[in-house]
Write a protein that binds this DNA or RNA. Structure first.
Length: 875
RNA sequence: GGGAGCUUAGCUCAGCUGGUUCAGAGCACCUGCCUUACAAGCAGGGGGUCAAUGGUUCGAAUCCAUUAGUUCCCACCA
């Protein structure tokens, strides 16, 4: 069979993914085996794959593929999130493009458009995951708004309401005027922005004097109901019982006193606008002040404002400033930096706004979830997130779960005859029953009820995800749920630790009586080389699919993982997938080499191959053991690096070089068989990281006893690790490296054979001499008692090696080299002697440590003696 | 304002229980090679007061304290 010289990724990837799907290798059903479960963090249904997804899903795939190879019944459940606010925003924008305004549509009409959009664009991202090689069980795909998931959400809402944990109340919420909905605290991003601080004059009633108030939001003056100063502030002690005139609207409001006011800030006078500032609101309650809400839901001013009605809030700010200037009520304007909250979804400035919302009481619910992470039942990786988690959970606030949107799970509360009386029920029928009970009116019909117009926060469905994907809410006794829950590992970004992870743990204990997962692997954020977050708006994010096309899925996977430890940011650069692609090509070429060999059953296995096989077997086992350990501690980058170095250095640069037959000569059967076996085992180790190329090679190499696909092959077992042979081989590697250096320094071509003389001073195993002969291209290795002069010499441990080179040797150079080494060794000996001469050290240090030092001393002394002799000999 | 973390080679990071894994890896860099698997490669090489200071200890990159720089989380002072 013809094997191409370069690894062609695209065709191979398509071929094997199709094959895996046809063979249903990724599908799982409950059986006797131990389950291994990952649920995907569901991407937005209308989203497209970005670099963060790539990293995240590569990690999940690596974990699930290895678990599958370990013989576990592994399942990775895929799905998408309806992402109510993000999706609704997209649909609104799309309709607007087509000249349709949302507010001209009925709810039903809008939802029809939204579902159409979902059907058309939904799941693109899941298709893209397939290109990455994601081994999800596609038969189990779930959507947060499909029947089972919706039913689960409603059931849970009703249950929490009946438990008294959900309540409806007027609260100051974060209002997104663009999306016209409340958003949760977690969805508000604060950042420093440049603004102005306006010093505004408020006339004191009955005095010809002004009180100066500093504000960043002059437009809210229209909603002022008081001015507040600190009671300890001597500047204002004369103002007791006075009132001031609110500028522009000329409303008379009281001056009140509260220690909340910071005397240092601005003028020490704070204007109170309860409707538009959370702190003002609380002060308003405390002093029983009225609330004047001057904004409409879209951020324009309403009639309560009195002025600038219908203008946008920012326009109103400008107009207010103009007006104040005209009235000569502005003392000064300063540049000022303050923190401005913006909506995560729409980026519009959040408006604190009073509104009637639904809340979930969190304090009681979150207790077991806090406990679980504290006691290690749920393990956060890296563990530094434990602190962050604890801090949040201990200060958790009630969760505002209602959103003024249409796309989502509609709140199952039904108002009776448009009153504020309501019942909460899973279905309309039940609602009618309850309403009849509640009102005593047996004639109540469905038409007398009106369902709450709000939908639930997206996270109110995703917090159930690990349970609901197995239908564990609606049918807690079903075999899937009983078998797969709790899941094992969750892989996600630290940004959603509170949004999602914490709440899933809460829901797990409340609705499944157990944690939702054992380990949470928190990935880093993918950034560019300047450490900027990759984002569409910055245009610094490459398209993952282009990368896959260019570097191959395996190459990209390797690139993503090579330097991204858990919790550490990934500084992306094209050199990463390049390195991955180069690695794939390296593997491919090693394979081409092995595949090109002709086997001759009649030739004996050469000595160098025999020892190479012995060494490599131990090296392989040692490596597997390391990799297992790294997997167990979630050091995935390190485990990949272990495989990488093992393949590149140990296998390609050493093992294959040793056993490689001369050009166009055949190889003996024993070595060939062993080599194929090694190569197959390496493919197994590579398979979780690089599923495509490892499958391709597996198909070439497998024999009739092997599984038909590497996907279902077993992870290699560890056999003996012969420490001694590993050690001896390292000496051999040093000998070879020294020979190579001599060749390079003296310009001796590789094809010229050299003689190597050895004087043994310490343990010397000659089993690897054949290896030195082959790789160093030596004529022979000769043991001697006499130093060889003139020659180029080197030491490995305390054994002396000489390569006689006649007139190529420059005595002075050799002496200088030796003297340098002598000097270093003497210095080293001094430091060791100092330690050993220290009584306290000898008395306190453990025996083995002292022994090590004595060994160092002996070695150094021996080395010094040899070096001195060599220098003498040369003179 | 409250809290947590980080600082080791040019870059990204390991270094887990203080002592043989103790100063490491990959990439980048430098030198020499188109040597019949691979230039997407091979061989060789240089490079770090382990942020600073002090302490504990026979012994500190590692433990403690202080300082500096830096990142993140929480709270949201108009």
């Amino acid at each position: 069979m013809e094997i191409p010289a370069k690894y062609e990724s695209s065709a191979i990837e398509k071929k094997w993914y199709k094959y895996w799907i046809e063979k249903k290798y990724f599908h799982s059903e409950p059986d006797d085996r131990e389950p291994y479960v990952i649920v995907i963090p569901p991407p937005n249904v209308t989203g497209v794959l970005h670099m963060g997804h790539m990293l995240n899903n590569t990690i999940q795939d690596i974990l699930v593929r290895r678990a599958r190879m370990l013989g576990k019944n592994a399942v990775w459940v895929p799905g998408t999130d309806h992402a109510s606010i993000a999706t609704e925003a997209k649909v609104v924008a799309k309709l607007k493009n087509e000249g349709i305004e949302k507010n001209t549509l009925t709810r039903e009409e809008f939802l029809k458009y939204a579902w159409e959009w979902k059907e058309k664009h939904g799941g693109i991202i899941l298709q893209q995951l397939k290109e990455l090689g994601a081994s999800c069980d596609w038969d189990r795909e779930a959507f947060t708004m499909d029947e089972i998931r919706s039913g689960s959400v409603i059931k849970v809402f009703v249950d929490l309401y009946n438990k008294g944990l959900i309540y409806r109340g007027v609260r100051m919420v974060n209002w997104d005027p663009e999306a016209k909905t409340a958003v949760s605290d977690e969805e508000v991003i604060y950042s420093e922005e440049n603004s102005k601080l306006y010093y505004v004059k408020y006339k004191i009633v009955g005095e010809d004097n002004y009180l100066i108030v500093a504000t960043t939001r002059p437009e809210t003056i229209l909603g002022d109901v008081a001015v507040c100063v600190n009671p300890n502030d001597t500047r204002y002690s004369g103002l007791k019982g006075k009132s001031v005139i609110v500028p522009m609207v000329n409303r008379e409001v009281p001056v009140i006193f509260d220690e909340y006011v910071d005397m240092e800030f601005g003028t020490g006078c704070l204007k109170i606008t309860p409707a538009h500032d959370i702190n003002d609101y609380e002060i308003g309650i405390k002093y029983n002040l009225p609330v004047i809400d001057i904004f409409n839901d879209d951020g324009t001013l309403n009639h309560s404002a009195g002025l600038f009605v219908g203008e946008d809030r920012f326009k109103a700010r400008e107009l207010s400033v103009e007006e104040l200037k005209k009235l000569d009520l502005i003392l000064k304007i300063e540049d000022y930096q303050n923190k401005v909250g913006r909506s995560e979804r729409t980026n519009s400035v959040i408006e604190p706004k009073l509104s009637l919302q639904w809340f979930l009481k969190m304090e009681q619910l979150s207790k077991p979830a806090l406990e679980a992470v504290e006691n290690g039942n749920v393990n956060l990786i890296p563990s530094k997130f434990k602190n962050v988690y604890r801090h949040w959970m201990e200060n958790v606030r009630d969760w505002c779960i209602s959103r003024q949107l249409w796309w989502g799970h509609r709140i199952p509360a039904y108002y009776i005859n448009d009153t504020n009386e309501f019942v909460v029920a899973g279905t309309e029928k039940e609602a009618v029953e309850l309403a009849r009970e509640k009102t005593g009116n047996k004639n109540l019909e469905a038409k007398d009820l009106y369902q709450d117009g709000d939908v639930l926060d997206t996270w109110f469905s995703s917090w159930l995800w690990p349970i609901s994907v197995f239908n564990g809410i609606l049918e807690p006794e079903n075999p899937d749920f009983k078998y797969y829950y709790p899941t094992n590992d969750l892989v996600t970004a630290p940004e959603i630790l509170f949004f999602w992870v914490a709440r899933m743990i809460i829901a797990g204990y409340e609705y499944a009586g157990d944690k939702p997962f054992s380990n949470v692997y928190l990935t880093g954020i993918v950034r560019d080389k300047q450490r900027r977050k990759m984002s569409k708006s910055l245009g610094n994010s490459p398209d993952p699919l282009d990368l896959i096309k260019e570097y191959g899925a395996d190459g990209v996977r390797v690139g993503m993982l090579l330097c991204s430890p858990a919790g550490g940011d990934l500084l992306y650069d094209n050199s990463l997938p390049e390195q991955g692609r180069n690695f794939a090509n390296k593997i491919w070429n090693a394979f081409r080499l092995v595949k090109s060999w002709q086997v001759d059953e009649n030739i004996e296995q050469p000595e160098h191959s025999k020892v190479a096989v012995r060494w490599f077997e131990s090296k392989l086992n040692e490596t597997i053991s390391n990799i297992n350990q790294q997997f167990d501690t979630f050091r995935l980058s390190e485990s990949l690096m272990s495989v990488y170095k093992f393949f590149w250095d140990d296998f390609s640069a050493w093992y294959l070089e040793i056993i490689k037959p001369e050009y166009q000569k055949p190889i003996d059967k024993e070595t060939y068989v062993r080599t194929l076996d090694f190569f197959k085992k390496i493919c197994l180790l590579l398979s979780p990281f690089m599923p495509f190329i490892s499958e391709e090679l597996w198909q070439f190499m497998k024999d009739k006893n092997d599984p038909e696909s590497i996907v279902i092959a077993k992870w290699p077992e560890i056999n003996v690790v012969d420490k001694e042979i590993l050690d001896e081989f390292e000496n051999c590697q040093q000998v070879v490296a020294n020979i190579r250096t001599v060749r390079q320094e003296k310009n001796i071509p590789q094809r010229d054979k050299l003689k190597l003389y050895v004087i043994k001073h310490c343990s010397y195993s000659s089993v690897f001499d054949t290896v030195s002969i082959k790789l160093g291209n030596l004529e022979e290795v000769i043991f001697t008692e006499e130093k060889i002069n003139p020659s180029s010499g080197f030491l490995v441990k305390t054994n002396e090696y000489f390569i006689p080179l006649g007139n190529l040797i420059n005595k002075e150079e050799e002496i200088t080299k030796l003297k340098e080494e002598l000097k270093y060794t003497e210095g080293f000996l001094v430091s060791v002697m100092k330690k050993l001469g220290n009584e306290k050290f000898v008395n306190n240090a453990p025996v083995n440590v002292i022994e090590i030092e004595r060994k160092k001393q002996a070695d150094a002394e021996a080395k010094i003696k040899i070096l001195k002799e060599q220098i003498e000999g040369l003179k």
